[in-house]
Design a protein around this nucleic acid. Structure first.
Lengths: 111, 111
DNA sequence: CCCGCTGTGAAAAAGCTGTAAAAGGGCGAG
DNA sequence: CTCGCCCTTTTACAGCTTTTTCACAGCGGG
């Protein structure tokens, strides 16, 4: 949880993440996230527009070495997608890059 | 995939390869490649303007000894050529050297 | 011509991802 | 202490994508 404490606010399209307040706003409305969800979203938004490996995400959020049989990252990506979809229907924030990892993008950019 | 992780960016004509970001740009646009395609292209561009044997490419990308009946390198050369042709029509980046191997060149030089 | 080398489509095999659901844990209320 | 609730982790499996293998046709050099 300390992974969110010193972090400055992040804006990304209709999202605003304030890690130090455990708060995510979507178009001004609070999005209710659990601790893991918030930490994972924070890690992704901090690395927006870049492909991030599961390894890196796992190290950052879980704080321990990644075992490739571990599906936690995927499961939480799914949870985040669901909540983001509920909040902003039709928008796609988290992209899968097969064999590489995930990439967060607030704008519809091609990279 | 770790074959791309510590690598510095490479520029070659209208191509820019950023292995550590799993990213290839062609005239600024992302070229979508699979893991193998990216690794093979990276290996070729790192050795640009030199003829590279299948053995060397196979060792570098697949990480194991080459069996001469293995056509994987050829198949992936074909995939890369196709994607590069789609991205930059009329341009030829990967040259065959009969009996020797392949050579990547960004400029239209003959050798 | 001959025969090994190369290009390539397509099938088979391997591997990766999305997701639901079960299992495991922590914590506060009573 | 026990229960109930919620969050996290693990498991299972279907559906897809990628990788590998195979087959055959066309080339190219001797």
């Amino acid at each position: 949880m300390e992974a969110t404490l010193g972090r400055p606010p992040l804006r990304a399209g209709e999202l605003e993440v304030r890690p130090s307040e455990f708060l995510v706003l979507v178009n001004g409305e609070r999005l209710h996230l659990t601790v893991r969800e918030l930490e994972l979203l924070t890690a992704l938004v901090e690395r927006r527009n870049r492909i991030v490996t599961r390894e890196e995400l796992y190290r950052e959020v879980w704080g321990e070495p990644y075992r490739k049989s571990d599906r936690s990252v995927d499961v939480y990506i799914g949870k985040l997608r669901q909540k983001l979809e509920d909040a902003v229907p039709g928008r796609r924030f988290i992209h899968t890059h097969f064999g590489f990892g995930y990439r967060f993008a607030a704008d519809s950019d091609r990279r």
